[in-house]
Design a binder for these strands. Structure first.
Length: 102
DNA sequence: ATTTTGACACTCT
DNA sequence: CAGAGTGCCAAAA
């Protein structure tokens, strides 16, 4: 298998995001690790920013390692709350309770 | 080839 | 808990 990047990486990342169960959240770093690129969390964020172009994915279930929501994704909180995610405050989900463990 | 950018992670204060 | 500083690395400029 050749080097995996852009289009292949996008497909891989999105397929992983698709696996996050309802009521759970994952971090960018976690997704990066599952995609076998543990140091590319930032790339995961960039891909999710464009994910709409590729289809419907539960990208609202991805937050940073502190549980902070994505900037400029104003419907994220309500989507998470609608599936039962609890928040520590306005900007941070309760990762302790809801982090997706494989 | 070099610099900047990014929905990040980690450590230290 | 909030900032600052550092590390990270592919993509785009």
């Amino acid at each position: 298998m050749g080097k995996v990047l852009d289009d292949d990486l996008i497909f891989l990342v999105l397929s992983i995001v698709e696996e996050i169960p309802e009521g759970k959240v994952a971090t960018y770093g976690q997704i990066a690790g599952l995609a076998d690129r543990p140091n590319n969390a930032r790339l995961v964020g960039k891909i999710l920013g464009m994910s709409e172009y590729y289809g419907e994915y539960p990208c609202h279930r991805v937050v940073n390692h502190n549980g902070r929501l994505a900037p400029n994704f104003h419907t994220q909180k309500e989507k998470l709350e609608s599936e039962g995610i609890k928040f520590k405050n306005d900007e941070h989900v309760d990762l302790k309770k809801h982090k997706w463990i494989i």
